[in-house]
């Protein structure tokens, strides 16, 4: 049962997995970069980033580049740890199948 427990419900969605994957290997990513990579709509992506932000897995930085608002995302230490646990759990599940 412990393996199943490590499967994190917060990551249980294609877009959220994608966001975390991108942020694990990049220092940060802005909204448009994520949108392009994940082929998601504005609203869809915003709701998923909000969920990850609420869980304290990512942090958000809002700033202005010139006059344009720009939103940047990066992982938190907690988010990285939880995502690694999640991947390990996935791998164990696959190996046990």
């Amino acid at each position: 049962m412990s393996i199943i427990n490590n499967i994190n419900k917060v990551f249980d969605h294609r877009i959220r997995l994608g966001i975390m994957s991108v942020l694990m290997v990049n220092e940060y990513a802005d909204f448009n970069m994520l949108k392009e990579l994940l082929a998601a709509t504005d609203g869809n992506l915003a709701s998923h980033t909000k969920a990850l932000e609420k869980a304290d897995y990512i942090w958000v930085e809002k700033q202005f580049i010139g006059r344009k608002p720009n939103t940047r995302y990066a992982t938190t230490t907690l988010g990285r740890a939880e995502f690694n646990k999640h991947i390990e759990a996935l791998e164990k599940l696959i190996n046990n199948q």
């Binding site: 997995l17 994957s21 694990m24 994940l38 791998e91 696959i94």
Partner: peptide, 22 residues
């Protein structure tokens, strides 16, 4: 939950990491 394709998840994660950094 068990019916989900975890293998697909892992390969999605890998390809997204690769694609977004290189």
């Amino acid at each position: 939950m068990e019916s989900k394709n975890y293998l697909q998840d892992i390969s999605d994660i890998k390809s997204m990491m690769h694609k977004s950094s290189r």
